[in-house]
């Protein structure tokens, strides 16, 4: 079937299978920043935005993206890079595999929450697993990025 959607501010028409999931569709169209790691909707690596909200692209049927606005890290490169510089200054990307999804959720949080507390930051980002860093460096980076103590 065909879907029409907006990906990173560009209208596209894609042919998809009916039981295809968005993360696979995006990768097939070259958005290789979208990673998958769990198969059970709980690691956060595949995070993209649908109509501005962070979602798990591995669990969204591509046909449901019809008419929607999808954003990957490629579509918000400038803002993402600003944070990525802070993240890498901490060394908190380590293997980097979880970073794009993590960054997408950090940017979503920045859009959604005003001056979040440390607890609120941790809560918002809980759905992003990372096995390398132990999370502390990521937290330092997020706090620097948001300018919170």
């Amino acid at each position: 079937m065909q879907i029409e959607l907006i990906v990173n501010d560009k209208s596209v028409t894609w042919d998809i299978e009916k039981d295809e999931f968005l993360a696979d569709t995006l990768r097939a169209h070259g958005f290789l920043s979208v990673k998958k790691a769990c198969d059970t909707s709980c690691c956060g690596l595949c995070t993209v935005w649908m109509d501005g909200k962070p979602v798990l692209s591995c669990s969204i049927l591509s046909m449901r993206a019809h008419g929607k606005k999808i954003t990957t890290i490629e579509g918000v490169a400038q803002a993402a890079e600003e944070f990525a510089h802070i993240l890498t200054a901490e060394g908190a990307e380590q293997c980097g595999f979880c970073s794009p999804g993590f960054i997408m959720n950090v940017l979503a949080m920045k859009n959604e929450l005003d001056n979040p507390t440390e607890d609120e930051i941790i809560h918002y980002l809980t759905g992003n697993l990372c096995r390398c860093t132990g999370y502390m460096g990521q937290l330092r980076a997020v706090k620097t990025y948001l300018g919170v103590a």
Binding site: A77, A84, T88, A89, G91, F97
Partner: peptide, 21 residues
């Protein structure tokens, strides 16, 4: 010195660099 990793920015930004990519 705490120099950022030379590959850090690319992989954090999701540039194709892993096996599947």
């Amino acid at each position: 010195h705490s120099i950022p990793k030379i590959d850090g920015l690319s992989i954090a930004m999701g540039k194709p660099a892993y096996t599947e990519d």
